[in-house]
Design a protein around this nucleic acid. Sequence first.
DNA 1: TCAATAGTGTCTCTTAGACAATATTGA
DNA 2: TCAATATTGTCTAAGAGACACTATTGA
Lengths: 216, 216
Amino acid sequence: MNLMPLVSADVALFCVERGALKVLLVQRARAPEQGEWALPGAVLKPELDQNLEATALRALRDKVSVEVGHLEQVATVSGPARDPRGYSVAVLFYALLPRDQVTAIVKSRIEAVEWDLASQPARALAFDHDELLSKAVALLRDKVERHALPLHLLPERFTLTELQRICEAVLGRSLDKGVFRRRLRDSPDLQEVPGELVRGSQRPAQVYRAAGGFRF
Amino acid sequence: MNLMPLVSADVALFCVERGALKVLLVQRARAPEQGEWALPGAVLKPELDQNLEATALRALRDKVSVEVGHLEQVATVSGPARDPRGYSVAVLFYALLPRDQVTAIVKSRIEAVEWDLASQPARALAFDHDELLSKAVALLRDKVERHALPLHLLPERFTLTELQRICEAVLGRSLDKGVFRRRLRDSPDLQEVPGELVRGSQRPAQVYRAAGGFRF
DNA sequence: TCAATAGTGTCTCTTAGACAATATTGA
DNA sequence: TCAATATTGTCTAAGAGACACTATTGA
């Protein structure tokens, strides 16, 4: 038997705020890299975590008091130098936070938290988290580019225009309304909701929700 | 500090043999699951492996004496029950073996090895390796379906028809010659080789090779 | 010439992209 | 009526799929 490395799960938690894709950063309260900003994460505790997804969920619960219903695995990085504590293995996930839960997160817990621009963070990140963040953003964009709908970024009920704005924020470019709606027309992931939603002085918009068991 | 889990790397090594996508299986020489068939793998040795990719390469080197030049990370699985030795984390990779190196592999090493049908193996696999294999096949197919060229499955020089046969084997369906060649026309991943290659009594075919630094 | 495979052309259909036109509401 | 946004339609171009046609070799 040989010395086993530190295994942990890190999470890029995304939201869309004011038209931009943001990622949640935490300021580390303890060494190593104390005071530096990083993606939230936790060390795997075999006696506590059923698997690494559970570790990731626990990290979000403990550090920012958030419960998310889904996780996407992005990649696993490893090596002797990426963490000063020694040889380490980190499994990276991302999760999406609905728009109506974004404000709830900031006023929680001991460590300072902050939403930073996902595609070009203002903060320099500890460890190799810059690289991890890039991978997570790339995977999310790739999925949306391939017509997956990031419905987890929206509240339970939403309009097609809201959905389009979210996709635009994720992709970092504007989409054509006609093309967007044409594709959604036959999407099995969306369901009309009979009730409508009126906003200000304009034509009311149809409300939709995610279809049961949709795949992201 | 708490007990850390067993970390290992497993590899689905693919080749195309007689028109079918095959995967390399090894018969386990030691417990656990002694005598059962599984994907080749190795336990991470921090003092030996620069990272988990190195562990995967070492597994191929030790078990089947093969050196591959590339690895694709597929996914990471974890949990207390997937390996009887205890809580474990396994990082799955796949690699592609060129057609002209397939025969070299079988006559190596202590453990029995076998090429099995990748999409529907005749052998039942130990641990959760059935599931791992499915993930690897799905990822490989997805990439080729999205027009990535699995050039690592071919020898250094090849014809377009050979390339098409390889893609067909990976995808498990036949492709249209015209469509296939039309796309390849502008591919930056392919380079013509001035010399030609004649085979039997028919029109000679242009020989190609992978362009420097192509992305798979 | 023929068999066999290499390589090209052509037609149709679907879809993306761009953009215009119409619809519906409150002020 | 007007401003503002929702929703639909239309034209064009690019690409996929199906399939036919031409080209080149050795036997």
